[in-house]
C-alpha cells in the first residue's frame, strides 16, 4: 500500500518536483507552460513529470500534438484499491482454512 503512498511521498521529496507538482495542481498544462519561468530546463521538467506520473500523482492526456498534465485524483483511491484486494485475499484464505476445518471434523 504503502508502496504506492511511499513512492508518491518520495517523488515529492525533491523540491523542484514539488514545485512542478504544485504548478500542475494550480493549472493543468503542457510541459512548456509548466516549465515557463522555472530555473530548470524543459527536458528536466519532462523528466520530473515522468517521475510524478509514475508515482500516480499526475496524469497526462493528449491534446493535439502536445500532452496536458493534470493532478491524478486517484491518490487515496489507490490505497483503497490496494486494501480492497488485501482484505479480499485474507478473507479468501480464512474461508479455505475454515472450510478445511469443517471437512476434517
Amino acid at each position: 500500500m504503502a508502496n504506492r503512498i511511499a513512492v508518491a511521498l518520495n517523488a515529492l521529496a525533491d523540491p523542484t518536483r514539488r514545485t512542478i507538482f504544485e504548478r500542475v495542481g494550480a493549472a493543468p498544462g503542457a510541459v512548456g507552460e509548466i516549465a515557463a519561468g522555472l530555473p530548470v530546463s524543459r527536458p528536466a521538467v519532462s523528466q520530473h513529470l515522468k517521475v510524478l506520473k509514475e508515482a500516480g500523482l499526475v496524469t497526462d492526456t493528449p491534446d493535439g500534438t502536445r500532452r496536458v498534465y493534470r493532478l491524478d485524483p486517484r491518490g487515496l483511491g489507490a490505497l483503497r484499491d490496494w486494501l480492497d484486494r488485501f482484505w479480499g485475499d485474507q478473507l479468501g484464505a480464512f474461508k479455505d482454512f475454515a472450510d478445511q476445518q469443517e471437512s476434517s471434523e
Binding site: 483503497r80 486494501l83 478473507l91 479468501g92 480464512f94 482454512f97 475454515a98 472450510d99 476445518q101 469443517e102
Partner: peptide
C-alpha cells in the same frame, strides 16, 4: 469503507473462534 464478505461452512461460534 471497504466491505468484503465470505460464507464459510462452520457455524458462527466456530467461525469466530477460528478467525
Amino acid at each position: 469503507p471497504i466491505v468484503q464478505s465470505v460464507t464459510v461452512a462452520v457455524p458462527p461460534d466456530r467461525a469466530f473462534t477460528l478467525f
